[in-house]
Lab assay of single mutants.
Amino acid sequence: MATGGRRGAAAAPLLVAVAALLLGAAGHLYPGEVCPGMDIRNNLTRLHELENCSVIEGHLQILLMFKTRPEDFRDLSFPKLIMITDYLLLFRVYGLESLKDLFPNLTVIRGSRLFFNYALVIFEMVHLKELGLYNLMNITRGSVRIEKNNELCYLATIDWSRILDSVEDNYIVLNKDDNEECGDICPGTAKGKTNCPATVINGQFVERCWTHSHCQKVCPTICKSHGCTAEGLCCHSECLGNCSQPDDPTKCVACRNFYLDGRCVETCPPPYYHFQDWRCVNFSFCQDLHHKCKNSRRQGCHQYVIHNNKCIPECPSGYTMNSSNLLCTPCLGPCPKVCHLLEGEKTIDSVTSAQELRGCTVINGSLIINIRGGNNLAAELEANLGLIEEISGYLKIRRSYALVSLSFFRKLRLIRGETLEIGNYSFYALDNQNLRQLWDWSKHNLTITQGKLFFHYNPKLCLSEIHKMEEVSGTKGRQERNDIALKTNGDQASCENELLKFSYIRTSFDKI
């Protein structure tokens, strides 16, 4: 039985969820670079991206490699990797027998973001014989899940209580170790020597080791999670996991709180800001991140802002960003909400898709409305799209047979046209069989910064309504002859009103 693990408890099935942008060198404390989270699957090609990484700022997932063999891993080693800020997950990587050479110096898994409450997941690794993470000293947050690894031993010899604050939620089941077939031998045991430290858990006094050649490092209890030197002297209180010299914040392997210019500090002093819960960055760093993602459509890219001495992905609820200094300031009234469309555009074809934009005031991208039916549609669209004030790209209304009016965009005031449909149009209306009105132009103002209007096959939309939009939106004169079809717009509506004058002759039985 794995020490510190839980057996036999019912657990939810383990679901495996399925960018080499360097964020800056980590400095003297770390020998390499800070790398983003990685999802490495199918083959070993991307694994080489770990070569210079000291910190993975995010998670590391290595999974679904069915053609790899043990010899493929023999020359692979990433000794610079010290810390993973989120979680480490391995799933069905064939041929991998140990992690001792792959990650010989991995010391800390912070667990800032977890995989279903777990910071370390080893699942269905069919050839893994031992973990071998002999320098792993601290899992700051989260638990361990090690399950269905039929060859995995050296679990009962690990004292997880020396690595985690609590072992109650560890789930370590259905491994070879369960069948008591392992016969784990710690260093020196074969020669009758006791080389590794022994600890007591559940009444068992057991030597602690990761492999037959690597003991588990056990520091004096007084050192807590700070770690200790090879001689057993406690590291500085700002260290986490390990250090090369005692009581020196510049000799830590990793930091308990924050890293700044080669030393570990309790908090980031001005003019620095907390970033990702582990390091200090200056304003320029946060500003660069903001600008890199301002026009990016890459998933996970955030326009970072500053709030409460932190550089964070977005302002919290009730705050909006001051564009001059990136500071989050309290909103006066309802907060603006910028919604970034991942692929640059979004099609609204149902109430469900409209709900995804609920509360958005600025759309960074283009909207395509293609709704053919739905219950209580006008009210639903207004509830979900009615706060949109600005669209950076274009607005396209296409084959939306259920629409009679666009009044559900009740606050839309600006279409920038930074991206144009077919390279020309910022407003595009095609084949809307029941569209009769755009907006009530006596109450609604709309500016279209650039781009043209396109109207074709809107049989109940009168040309007068379209011409009014040209005047109000500032697009009059931009359109070419064929942009607004004269014969297919309003051709099934009563669009022309003329005053009919009647004269009559009164007659009676005795007068003409």
Results as ranks from 00 to 15, higher is better:
Y30R: 03
C35W: 00
P36R: 05
G37L: 04
G37T: 11
M38D: 03
M38F: 03
I40Q: 01
R41W: 08
N42P: 05
L44K: 05
L44Q: 04
T45W: 15
H48S: 09
E49C: 07
L50N: 01
L50P: 00
L50M: 11
L50S: 01
E51C: 15
C53M: 00
S54A: 05
G58E: 00
L60M: 07
L60A: 01
Q61E: 11
L63Q: 15
L64T: 10
F66Q: 04
F66G: 14
K67N: 04
T68G: 04
P70Y: 03
P70F: 05
E71W: 05
D72T: 09
F73L: 09
R74W: 13
R74Y: 10
D75R: 03
D75L: 10
S77L: 11
K80E: 06
K80Y: 15
K80G: 14
K80D: 01
I82M: 09
M83R: 00
L88N: 01
L89G: 01
L90N: 00
R92A: 11
V93F: 11
E97D: 09
S98A: 11
S98T: 11
L99Y: 01
K100H: 15
F103Y: 00
F103G: 00
F103N: 00
P104Q: 02
P104G: 01
N105G: 07
N105W: 02
L106H: 01
R110G: 08
R110I: 06
Y118Q: 15
K129Q: 14
L131W: 02
Y134G: 13
N135G: 14
L136G: 02
L136S: 01
M137W: 13
M137K: 10
I139V: 08
T140A: 12
T140E: 04
G142T: 00
N150E: 10
L155W: 03
I158S: 03
D159E: 11
W160T: 01
S161K: 14
I163D: 00
L164F: 00
L164C: 13
L164W: 04
L164K: 13
D165N: 05
E168L: 14
D169K: 11
D169E: 10
N170Y: 05
N170T: 07
N170Q: 07
Y171T: 04
Y171P: 02
L174G: 08
N179S: 08
E180N: 10
E181S: 11
C182I: 03
G183I: 03
G183C: 10
G183E: 14
D184R: 14
D184E: 07
P187C: 13
P187Q: 03
G188L: 14
A190Q: 15
G192I: 02
T194F: 15
C196D: 00
P197G: 02
P197I: 14
V200Q: 11
V200L: 04
I201Y: 11
I201V: 11
I201K: 12
Q204T: 05
Q204D: 13
Q204H: 02
C209N: 04
W210Q: 14
W210V: 13
S213T: 14
C215Q: 01
K217V: 12
V218W: 12
C223V: 01
C223K: 01
C223T: 01
K224P: 09
S225T: 12
G227C: 05
C228G: 15
E231W: 03
G232D: 15
C234F: 01
C235R: 00
H236W: 01
S237G: 11
E238Y: 08
C239M: 00
C239S: 00
L240G: 12
L240R: 05
G241K: 04
G241E: 03
N242W: 12
N242Q: 12
C243K: 00
C243A: 00
Q245I: 15
P249I: 05
T250S: 10
K251I: 00
K251Y: 13
V253M: 09
R256T: 08
R256A: 04
R256F: 11
N257W: 03
N257P: 00
D261L: 10
D261V: 03
D261P: 09
G262Y: 02
R263V: 11
R263S: 04
V265K: 04
V265C: 02
C268P: 00
P269G: 06
P271D: 01
Y273V: 10
Y273E: 00
C280T: 01
S284M: 11
S284I: 05
F285E: 02
F285W: 09
C286N: 02
Q287R: 07
D288S: 03
L289S: 08
L289D: 03
H290E: 02
K292P: 13
C293P: 02
K294V: 10
S296T: 11
S296P: 04
Q299C: 07
Q299M: 10
G300L: 11
H302I: 09
H302W: 14
Q303L: 07
Y304G: 12
Y304T: 15
I306R: 01
H307V: 07
N309S: 08
N309Y: 06
K310N: 05
K310R: 11
I312L: 05
E314L: 05
E314F: 01
C315A: 05
G318H: 09
N322T: 02
S324Y: 02
S324D: 10
N325C: 13
N325P: 11
N325L: 08
N325E: 14
L326Q: 12
L327R: 07
T329I: 08
C331S: 03
L332V: 07
L332N: 14
G333A: 12
C335P: 12
P336A: 04
